[in-house]
Design a protein around this nucleic acid. Structure first.
Lengths: 230, 230
DNA sequence: GTCTATAGTCGGATAGAC
DNA sequence: GTCTATCCGACTATAGAC
């Protein structure tokens, strides 16, 4: 019944154990899903098995904590680009289509960087798992970063294509654009094999970035207000 | 050491048990990954637990058999559209850009149908899992349908955008286009929540189809040979 | 706060009756 | 071919020493 003690009440040693478990949990749960064993988790973290129920109440508690940690990490990576867009959208003079395209391209590029980064491989797996078969952890992911990101992207796209941020056609562009970047993880094995890549380094990322920019420019085409700029 | 008997040697009852296990395995493995328990699998199939090692040697053998079955199912769904494209590409007069666009749109639409169909939910989960964390089952998926599909899509896109099927920029378009459809599963929870959909029915699919067609038309833009047709 | 030891349950695979 | 019964190792969680 009694939850684990508040972080402030814990010593430094305890806090380190907590952090190690959290990091390991993201990786191991990402790879194996919730079915991963507590032994696996404890071994990966290099801590004792009994530390899991002590710090997180249960394996399930650790799972939820991992989801929240992921949301925080992702938000910190996307917020710089998202905040620039938020600022522009809230300004008295909202961005024109060209400005909106530039802001959007920046956000998508930050997202792609994340999908390519090895350090985020485990987060991405965790999130995609929850997308396909949501558990109660999905609420934390959605509230933590998915919802806020969507709320910024929809009006940004509306500035480019016309229409409003509530229009279904506009809103559908958000997962469409993100989906083609998400494939860097959700179709990674195919990508590497068919393009004969061993990994996604800077040279490969340059091609991906070009593709993103092109798809942003193509957003309002074949609509009449398409432009060659950006 | 001795593998399970050849299908022909098995009675009708045995063959039915085998099929039930295969169907259940695709669903249960898709949901829970390889960590799903044999008891879960047997219960879902409505057969005895001991039938798994009998028919498939081991849980792992059942997993591989499930991968092969999935490849066959997906191939049978995509082949009608893919074969039309193969025929056109092999013809003495290869398709022009407009024809290629129409063929491509058909293939992508068939793929989207599959991603939306409830019956294929379990296949899709299984495949995406293998993409993120490939096991030896991925080879069967790749050989079974991913490789052949890629081999047709790359030259088809080359006819639209210019360049050759070996060009990295052309090849990268394949996972990009498929990725924005794959999101129907890999980002399904977000899609439903943010668009306030309960499910993806015919009305919702119509919007998705429009988006696919638009993205095919936009493929060779801002290149000079973009056209307003299709 | 972290450890070892252990309780109680569930895992995959098999043996042998039918 | 299918079943029940069973082995034995791995599982989560807890108790209690330190």
């Amino acid at each position: 019944m009694a939850p684990s003690p508040a972080p402030a009440a814990r010593g430094e040693r305890g806090e380190e154990t907590r952090q190690r478990l959290l990091q390991a949990a993201i990786d191991v749960f990402g790879r194996h899903g919730f079915e991963a064993s507590t032994r696996q988790l404890a071994a990966a973290a290099g801590v004792n098995l009994a530390a899991i129920p002590y710090h997180f109440e249960s394996k399930h508690g650790l799972y939820l904590a991992a989801a929240e940690h992921i949301a925080g990490e992702i938000r910190s990576r996307l917020d710089p680009a998202l905040d620039r867009a938020r600022l522009a959208l809230a300004a008295p003079a909202p961005p024109d289509a060209a400005d909106a395209r530039a802001l959007l391209a920046e956000i998508l590029e930050a997202f792609a960087r994340m999908m390519v980064d090895d350090a985020s491989a485990s987060w991405a797996r965790f999130v995609i798992r929850e997308q396909m078969e949501p558990s109660d952890a999905f609420d934390r992911l959605h509230g933590g970063f998915i919802g806020p990101a969507f709320a910024t992207l929809a009006p940004l796209i509306a500035r480019i294509t016309g229409g409003t941020a509530e229009d279904e056609r506009v809103r559908l562009q958000v997962p469409r654009l993100l989906g083609q970047i998400l494939m860097l993880r959700s179709a990674r094995a195919t990508l590497l094999r068919e393009l004969h890549w061993n990994a996604i380094g800077e040279a490969e990322f340059a091609l991906i970035r070009d593709l993103i920019r092109t798809s942003v420019v193509a957003l309002d085409w074949p609509r009449p207000n398409a432009r060659e700029d950006l």
